[in-house]
Design a protein around this nucleic acid. Sequence first.
DNA 1: CGACGGGACGC
DNA 2: CGACGGGACGC
Length: 543
Amino acid sequence: MANYQPYDKRHRDLQEDVRPANSRLFILCSKQATEEMFQKEFERYGGIEDIWVVKDKRSNENKGVTYIKYGKTSEAALAMEEMNGKSLDGDPKPLKVMIASSKREGSIRDPKEDEKNLRLFVIVPKSYSRDDLRKEFEEFGDIDSVSLVTDKYSGANKGFGYVRFHRAYHAALAFEGCDPSFKPKYADPKPQKERDQDVMFDPREVYPGYQSGYRDSGRESRGGSRYDSDRGGRYEDRSYRRDNMRDMRGVGDSMQGMKRGHSEMMDDFGGNMGGGGGFSVSSGPLDILERYPSTGSTRLHITAPIGLSQGYLTRLFSIIPGLEYCDLNEATGQAFARYTSPQCASYARDKLHGFEYPIGSPLVVRCADEQQRPPDLRSLGQSSMGFDSYAGYGGGKAQGNDMFRRAALILENAGINPDRVLGGQQASQDTERVGYCPIPLPPPKKMLPDDTPVAKRLFIVCQPSGTPEKILRDAFCRMGNLIDVYLLPARNYGYAKYATIESAMKAIELLHGQNIGGNRLKVIEAEPTRKDFDNEPYKKQRT
DNA sequence: CGACGGGACGC
DNA sequence: CGACGGGACGC
């Protein structure tokens, strides 16, 4: 019984999954391959933790199977993509390189082999649209498709969805680098029907851009203009309209603003939209925009009122032709938009600057200076080490201070001393202004993974109503070492979890009693959970 | 072509 | 005042 080991140890080994997920390779190779050969060819992709060339226990014969464990998921994914089909030096047999299944899953041969490396399961806010989800993940690479799970009858977003990439490496970058609130997991392959797989199919599966009565794009675009495939069918799309209705909460009279916006644009485009006939050939919008005087910049910087949603702002700016993207940081109210031509951008600026949306809250729209352009997250994500995604939604220091100065200017114009209202609290070097909070806060810090041990838990109450979790996350992550912050469903109280006591105490110090997004926050140390009591019945309770 | 070793002494 | 969240693909 040389192989004996205690039951619990064996049991644990079988239960244990590879961590991080998908960081171990399973390689089919010739029986001549040695550990040194693998070391030489595979170490360039990252930190190898273990190489195991499998040998028969009795005969010690090489079985032509090797496992390589990397420290990171993305390292394993890149090694697989690069080395699959290649040969080791002086060995003719090409390698077959796959992501290893966990020991528990065993050696079941899966027809959808790479399925499990390409698709992520993510938790999303219930207000999210597919576009919102896509925008959050396309910085990591080429997205094949995104989907949200909705209630069959009500159509309500159930709060989770899927993102499928074309490349395992890109999926891995997203898995490692996306905002931790998405709680990304590699999706289990979708359960498949046994029969009729080839006959009964959902056209949206094969054509992610497919809309009823609208089918010209086939696959969604691979990194080009992200609206191309979706746009045409939008107004027919039930779920999209629903998302916008949801987003109306907290935006007040924005529907009126919306109507005003549409009619103004139609007038400018010769009024031929209103009659239901579309654009005429001779005086369409593109003709007008071609001649429009521009500053030469295709990008706009927008300051929007807090509470305005990503979906609403995008819809507003998409009224002007040529919108490539419109990205709003909902927490700070700062947005950037890009148009296909500088004429379009300048036209949008002129028409939408000062536009009250909702009424009483003018947008500030300016051409974005190319020099102030934030770093290109896409290229950062694709460079092997640049996982610089922040929980804090961009919204840099310059923007925050800029917004503060603008607020001061508006107050001054209204005959009010800005120092009296704003308390003279200028942003310093270590802090920045944010749209939702009257005091400057430290810059955003990266959140920590969901399974990080909690050092301190805080209890949060938002009076009078709940504060959007995006705003809470933006505020609480700024103390550093934030693991999670959430409110209980349909409640105005919740919890924040920190990995260090110092960060948690800083949160109490800075945020307790503070006005955040229009709510008064109470932030105190949380009592131990009921579960903690249950699990530690022998410990004396402290008062 | 296709799947799981070796290490190790801890409160 | 207010105390413990949500998770698998419209069948």
